[in-house]
Measured scan of single mutants.
Amino acid sequence: TFELKGKVGKVVKIAEDHYLVESEGDKWIAYSDEKLSLGDRVMVVDVDGLKLKVKRIP
């Protein structure tokens, strides 16, 4: 299986209740415990079905 946990991506869209993150050339629906901005670099900390939980990284 394709393992996304630990992968790095970038926030490419902000929606009302989720983010769109591009990682490894694909776009994924993501959510975070912190507020993210367009262009933020993020790391995948968990995968919930087809949704990614991400956190901001420097």
Score class of each variant (00 low, 15 high):
57 I>P: 05
21 V>S: 02
5 K>F: 15
57 I>D: 14
7 K>D: 04
56 R>F: 14
20 L>P: 00
53 K>Y: 12
42 V>Q: 00
38 L>S: 09
13 K>H: 06
27 K>W: 07
52 L>A: 06
7 K>R: 11
31 Y>K: 12
21 V>M: 13
36 L>A: 02
37 S>D: 10
2 F>I: 15
43 M>T: 11
8 V>P: 12
26 D>I: 12
6 G>V: 01
7 K>H: 08
44 V>K: 00
44 V>G: 02
5 K>Q: 14
56 R>D: 03
24 E>S: 04
46 D>T: 03
39 G>A: 08
7 K>M: 14
22 E>L: 10
32 S>V: 04
25 G>M: 05
22 E>P: 00
12 V>M: 07
48 D>G: 03
57 I>S: 08
6 G>M: 01
23 S>K: 00
37 S>N: 08
11 V>N: 00
55 K>M: 14
43 M>C: 14
1 T>E: 15
30 A>N: 00
51 K>F: 14
20 L>V: 08
24 E>P: 03
46 D>C: 03
46 D>H: 03
36 L>G: 00
29 I>Q: 09
1 T>K: 15
28 W>L: 08
14 I>V: 11
50 L>N: 09
54 V>S: 01
51 K>P: 02
51 K>R: 11
50 L>S: 07
36 L>P: 02
35 K>F: 09
9 G>E: 01
16 E>M: 08
38 L>D: 07
38 L>Q: 08
37 S>P: 03
44 V>D: 01
38 L>C: 12
48 D>L: 11
25 G>A: 04
48 D>R: 04
26 D>S: 12
24 E>N: 03
27 K>E: 10
41 R>Y: 13
10 K>W: 10
32 S>A: 12
42 V>D: 00
18 H>M: 12
3 E>R: 00
1 T>I: 15
15 A>T: 12
6 G>H: 01
1 T>Y: 15
20 L>S: 07
12 V>G: 05
52 L>D: 01
37 S>R: 09
55 K>A: 13
30 A>I: 02
50 L>W: 13
29 I>F: 11
9 G>T: 04
43 M>N: 04
23 S>Y: 02
40 D>Y: 05
53 K>M: 09
32 S>I: 05
14 I>P: 03
51 K>T: 14
35 K>N: 07
15 A>Q: 09
10 K>G: 09
21 V>R: 01
18 H>I: 10
45 V>I: 10
35 K>V: 09
7 K>Q: 10
47 V>F: 09
23 S>G: 06
57 I>A: 11
37 S>K: 06
39 G>H: 09
41 R>L: 13
42 V>P: 00
31 Y>E: 14
19 Y>E: 01
51 K>D: 10
29 I>V: 10
28 W>S: 02
53 K>R: 12
27 K>P: 04
4 L>I: 14
58 P>F: 06
36 L>T: 01
54 V>H: 01
4 L>A: 14
37 S>T: 10
14 I>N: 08
29 I>R: 09
3 E>I: 01
39 G>M: 09
27 K>F: 08
58 P>D: 09
25 G>F: 04
41 R>D: 14
41 R>W: 09
1 T>S: 15
29 I>H: 13
34 E>F: 04
19 Y>D: 01
54 V>I: 06
3 E>S: 00
13 K>D: 12
21 V>W: 15
25 G>Q: 05
24 E>Q: 04
49 G>K: 09
29 I>N: 10
17 D>H: 11
33 D>A: 10
39 G>K: 06
19 Y>F: 06
25 G>V: 04
42 V>R: 00
43 M>I: 14
24 E>C: 12
41 R>F: 13
2 F>P: 15
47 V>I: 07
27 K>G: 05
44 V>C: 12
9 G>R: 00
13 K>P: 00
51 K>G: 13
20 L>I: 10
7 K>V: 06
30 A>Y: 00
58 P>M: 04
31 Y>S: 11
19 Y>V: 11
13 K>W: 07
43 M>H: 05
31 Y>N: 13
9 G>K: 00
39 G>R: 06
45 V>A: 03
15 A>N: 08
33 D>I: 10
1 T>W: 15
32 S>M: 07
14 I>H: 07
53 K>E: 14
35 K>M: 07
16 E>S: 13
8 V>W: 03
3 E>H: 02
19 Y>P: 00
8 V>A: 05
5 K>I: 15
37 S>V: 11
52 L>H: 02
41 R>H: 12
55 K>P: 00
25 G>S: 04
35 K>T: 10
46 D>I: 03
4 L>N: 15
8 V>K: 05
12 V>W: 04
41 R>S: 14
14 I>K: 10
27 K>N: 11
22 E>H: 10
3 E>Q: 01
45 V>K: 03
10 K>D: 08
4 L>V: 15
40 D>L: 06
10 K>Q: 08
54 V>K: 00
10 K>L: 11
10 K>P: 03
22 E>Q: 05
16 E>G: 10
56 R>W: 13
42 V>L: 02
15 A>H: 12
18 H>W: 10
46 D>A: 03
8 V>R: 02
20 L>R: 06
37 S>G: 08
53 K>F: 13
49 G>M: 08
21 V>D: 01
32 S>W: 02
41 R>P: 12
54 V>A: 02
27 K>S: 09
2 F>Y: 02
28 W>F: 13
7 K>F: 04
20 L>Q: 07
30 A>K: 00
13 K>G: 10
25 G>Y: 04
3 E>D: 04
46 D>Q: 03
7 K>L: 11
34 E>L: 04
52 L>Q: 02
5 K>N: 15
52 L>N: 03
43 M>V: 14
35 K>Q: 09
49 G>C: 10
20 L>E: 07
33 D>Y: 07
25 G>P: 04
9 G>D: 00
30 A>M: 13
58 P>Q: 05
9 G>H: 01
6 G>Y: 01
34 E>M: 06
23 S>R: 02
26 D>H: 12
26 D>Y: 12
11 V>M: 03
43 M>A: 06
33 D>G: 09
24 E>F: 03
57 I>W: 12
37 S>I: 11
23 S>V: 15
8 V>F: 04
50 L>T: 07
2 F>G: 15
47 V>H: 04
23 S>H: 05
41 R>T: 13
22 E>K: 05
18 H>R: 09
8 V>N: 04
31 Y>F: 09
33 D>S: 12
31 Y>Q: 14
38 L>A: 10
48 D>Y: 12
33 D>M: 11
19 Y>Q: 02
2 F>N: 15
46 D>F: 03
35 K>Y: 07
27 K>L: 12
23 S>N: 04
45 V>W: 05
12 V>K: 06
30 A>G: 06
13 K>T: 10
11 V>I: 07
38 L>E: 13
9 G>P: 01
32 S>Q: 02
52 L>R: 01
56 R>S: 08
46 D>E: 05
58 P>K: 04
26 D>F: 14
4 L>D: 15
40 D>W: 05
52 L>M: 03
15 A>I: 08
21 V>P: 01
42 V>C: 12
14 I>M: 12
55 K>D: 14
43 M>K: 03
47 V>W: 06
38 L>G: 05
31 Y>T: 13
49 G>Q: 06
51 K>C: 14
51 K>N: 12
38 L>H: 08
48 D>V: 07
29 I>S: 07
52 L>K: 01
28 W>Y: 14
6 G>L: 01
12 V>C: 07
44 V>M: 02
20 L>D: 07
56 R>T: 11
39 G>T: 06
22 E>M: 06
19 Y>C: 13
11 V>T: 05
45 V>F: 04
19 Y>K: 01
14 I>A: 11
39 G>Y: 11
36 L>C: 10
55 K>C: 14
23 S>D: 04
43 M>E: 14
36 L>H: 03
9 G>W: 02
46 D>L: 03
7 K>I: 04
20 L>F: 10
52 L>S: 02
21 V>N: 01
34 E>A: 06
28 W>P: 00
4 L>T: 15
8 V>T: 06
3 E>F: 02
58 P>I: 06
38 L>R: 06
35 K>L: 10
6 G>F: 02
57 I>V: 10
15 A>L: 11
58 P>E: 08
53 K>C: 11
13 K>V: 06
54 V>Y: 01
23 S>M: 15
5 K>T: 14
16 E>K: 10
